[in-house]
């Protein structure tokens, strides 16, 4: 039995359908059409303690719904879920003591008061003993560099500062599992790095299990080895990120600088385009190796310069979504 065990979870929402315009709004006020939207269907996976899992998928794929079910906010229509021996929606109070949740788009801090006041209130909500609270708080303050900002009203903080406080607030009660729903949304490069490094360290030192959703693939690549891809409410891929990258990495982009004209037709070369000072080629390394290609080309023309590129992770994801038609 794994630490987190999710079995065939489905959830359907009933959504009022409305056409645009005032007239339609008034009409729908009296009579509503409902459509049923399957947010997630038959989702199953298991996660071990101490893992970091990236949960990815396009907008509206069902990521947030899954997170909400796993964190006990929503009750699924069918399916089972056992996390650390508890079904989240059946024993809410006991369960939520063990988890921390960060919603990147929503704040849990009191807008008009310093973050430290929120921390203080959370101490009472989670009934954390004073000593434990002080040591956890000091630890978090040091790690996330919050010394200068926890005494400023939250509304005056920058987004990056606020997010660091949010994360600290979610960890005050030493949860075993951390859910991060787009934790780096809207942050600058430096803040993103701080957040990522912190999560990585936390996972390593405290063996905290992390489930992370993000549209920033750099978050996923730097944090998790395993990803779960979801689209249209189904799990489409569950496995190592590396494998997925390899699948798409066989495609290389080669740009050659040359003054000569190049005529080449060979299996494995998919795309040839004349540019200002040379050619761009797309090849598949399963069908033609790079050395073979260079061999052929260098016999025909003089190469002034050459650049070989692999798809970056964002492009891979775009292709992945395309391949799965989501």
């Amino acid at each position: 039995m794994s630490f987190i065990e999710v079995r065939q979870i489905s959830k359907t929402f009933r959504i009022a359908r409305k056409k645009s315009g005032l007239k339609e709004s008034i009409k729908s006020f009296f009579k509503r059409d409902f459509i049923h939207v399957k947010a997630v269907e038959d989702i199953s996976f298991s996660i071990d303690e101490g893992e970091i899992v990236g949960y990815i998928g396009p907008n509206g794929a069902g990521k947030s719904t899954t997170i909400k079910i796993l964190s006990g906010i929503l009750i699924p229509d069918s399916g089972d879920c056992l996390i650390d021996g508890i079904t989240p929606w059946k024993n809410r109070v006991e369960y939520v003591k063990r988890i921390g949740v960060v919603f990147g788009q929503r704040s849990q801090l009191w807008w008009d008061l310093p973050a430290e006041d929120t921390f203080d209130l959370l101490k009472d909500i989670y009934e954390i003993p004073e000593e434990e609270y002080q040591s956890t708080k000091n630890d978090l303050v040091n790690r996330l560099n919050l010394q200068d900002i926890i005494n400023i009203p939250v509304r005056q903080l920058s987004l990056g500062q606020r997010m660091r406080c949010e994360i600290a607030a979610s960890l005050l009660h030493n949860p075993k599992i951390l859910f991060l729903d787009e934790p780096t949304i809207g942050l600058d490069a430096v803040s993103k790095q701080i957040v990522r490094d912190f999560i990585k360290k936390l996972n390593k030192e405290k063996k905290i299990t992390v489930i992370l959703t993000s549209h920033d693939m750099a978050d996923i690549t730097s944090l998790s080895k395993r990803i779960i891809l979801i689209g249209n409410g189904h799990v489409l891929y569950d496995g190592s990120l590396k494998k997925l990258q390899n699948r798409y990495e066989c495609e290389k982009y080669i740009s050659i600088k040359t003054k000569d004209r190049l005529f080449i037709h060979k299996k494995g070369i998919y795309h040839k385009k004349k540019t200002k000072d040379g050619y761009d080629l797309t090849i598949n390394t399963n069908e033609i190796s790079i050395s073979e290609l260079l061999n052929v080309i260098s016999k025909k023309i003089t190469i002034d310069d050459i650049e070989i590129e692999t798809d970056n992770i964002d492009n891979i994801i775009v292709k992945l979504y395309k391949d799965y038609q989501i």
């Binding site: 909400k68 964190s71 006990g72 906010i73 809410r92 109070v93 006991e94 939520v96 003591k97 988890i99 949740v101 919603f103 929503r106 849990q108 909500i125 989670y126 009934e127």
Partner: peptide, 11 residues
């Protein structure tokens, strides 16, 4: 959506 947050707290 702030009700979500309340559901995440053990009270």
């Amino acid at each position: 959506g702030n009700f979500d947050r309340l559901l995440l707290r053990p009270k």
